[in-house]
Design a protein around this nucleic acid. Structure first.
Lengths: 300, 300
DNA sequence: CATGATTTATGAATTTATTTCATCAATAAA
DNA sequence: TTTATTGATGAAATAAATTCATAAATCATG
């Protein structure tokens, strides 16, 4: 029977590149690993490793076991860490994932009161997912997903938690600041600064420029919101961000913002979570708190 | 350290309702289970079971372990069965899931030549998913998903494999059979027979009746296509099915079909699969075969 | 409430599995 | 060829799981 230990060993050999190293990393003798591998190979009558010179290479069978290990081991570890927390009388860790850059600023405002209200609960916020936020939610890597596009799935429930308007941001002295709202053609001669993500996830493109068949003069990407805004204030380009974010960060009022199109681009942030199976009820508590502190930036 | 065996034991006690029964089902002594549970409880310093009378009830901690077990154990079992097949020199099992009832008939036509071409590969077709087809694909319960709605996810690739037209089916003597195509209002006085699935998954409603703000006189559901068609032939109602399916099943030509709306409702079936990690390459082979035998029922 | 049937818990013994130790064989570099 | 380095192997030691026998608790029943 394949055991958790076997998975750990196969994974360690694979990542370390050799049995000797893997043995050290697992605090076991090299012999132990060799015996363990031999046991798997004899019980299933399938080689797991093939020797090429003195490198060990996974066989097809080995690769399927490694796949199992990579899917399954993190889940063991997470459950164990939950158990440890329970033993200490603490509540769980709420792992929140985010799919949109400026979500983070909003999240901070909910996380702070949540941590205060539930001192025995921890929050962990993750921004990067190897396989996308939904997968992470799904594969139990996170418990809550903050996202602007609630992809309907049977097992996942979304709750709208925040409405906001996405506006074009420019320096107060920028010519476009004199307009009452922005039209797609207005951006043809501008430098647009965005976060470094796929274009398909940027609303300025998908909902504004592309439908109007317009393009910008230049497109730069910047990671951090603060730097982005400094660039914009310095007249080096324009960007599109949630209105509330600008109102909050632009203390010296160096920035102006205008709606994208006459109606403006209106967005909703959703919190997605798996249906059922929330040991501490933390997910529900967080959503409740997010809703109670609900503030709309959407002029409603 | 929580082990696969611990998970099996917790799951067995939970499903059997008692340790004694669980012990029998696992071919172990009751004492073994008791000791195993005690070990988990002492290493994590958390109770897993609470005794209510002489029933065992899972604690919060127990429920998280059970959750882990239910997510993880099937994956162990599947990997093991793959290993057994590899040992026999066989190729894997291709587990295909379906999300639309009439897909099955189409699938049969691809599966037959596939099994002939790859005699060492097995195919398993599943129709019911506890958490939806995508979840099943994702959670490694199936390898291939045949679906009419390709929900875009980063980890899943869709290949269109079949175009068809969804038509309204009626008995040849039915008054609607005299029309050249069906309009939504035509159905207001009809009994509509469908498969027993959510309305949101039925195109007659979503793409035809609801947009036109029309309703049918009555709505009946029937599981099997054959019975459905007999009901229709007997003049007991009308139904909506792929055109090719009718052409194939209606040998005595008791049935007539007409397009839903002048353009008709045109659908595409997609085969979805996880990116990467297909130990035998069976997924690719199947898709290739599905495409090579590609027949369009869409008049193109 | 006493009795018997049934269920879980426990300590000691037993069996099974894992790990180490010492050593060999194979590989790659010097 | 010599010399590290790496994996493989059998025997011994250690650790873990399992059983056995039995106790304690629960529940139904006369």
């Amino acid at each position: 029977m394949i055991d958790r230990q076997h998975l750990k060993i196969i994974k360690a050999i694979y990542t370390c590149g050799s049995m000797t190293e893997a043995a050290a990393s697992l605090h076991l003798s090299q012999s132990a690993l060799s015996h363990a591998m031999k046991k798997v190979e004899t019980t299933y009558k399938v080689p797991v490793w093939r020797k090429e010179g003195r490198k060990l290479v996974l066989t097809q069978a080995g690769r399927s076991i490694l796949g199992l290990a990579e899917r399954v081991l993190p889940q063991f570890e997470h459950t164990e860490s939950m158990l440890h927390r329970m033993a200490q009388g603490k509540q769980g860790i709420l792992r929140i994932g985010m799919e949109c850059h400026p979500c983070f600023e909003w999240l901070l405002k909910v996380v702070a009161p949540f941590l205060k209200a539930y001192p025995d609960a921890d929050v962990d916020v993750r921004r990067a997912f190897s396989f996308g936020g939904l997968q992470a939610l799904h594969g139990f890597d996170i418990d809550l997903l903050l996202t602007p596009d609630p992809l309907r799935l049977d097992t996942i429930t979304y709750t709208p938690v925040f409405n906001y308007e996405q506006v074009l941001v420019m320096s107060t002295s920028h010519p476009l600041a004199s307009k009452s709202f922005i039209q797609p053609v207005d951006l043809c001669s501008e430098t647009l600064i965005t976060y470094p993500v796929e274009l398909s996830r940027l609303d300025v493109f998908c909902q504004f420029l592309t439908p109007a068949n317009c393009a910008v003069k230049a497109h730069k990407t910047i990671e951090t919101t603060e730097i982005m805004l400094q660039m914009v204030a310095a007249g080096r380009g324009v960007t599109a961000l949630p209105k509330w974010l600008i109102q909050e960060l632009d203390e010296q009022s160096e920035l102006a913002f205008r709606s994208l199109g006459e109606p403006g681009i209106h967005k909703t942030l959703y919190l997605g979570h798996r249906k059922g199976g929330d040991p501490f009820g933390l997910v529900d508590k967080f959503i409740e708190m997010a809703l109670s502190g609900l503030h709309n930036d959407d002029g409603e």
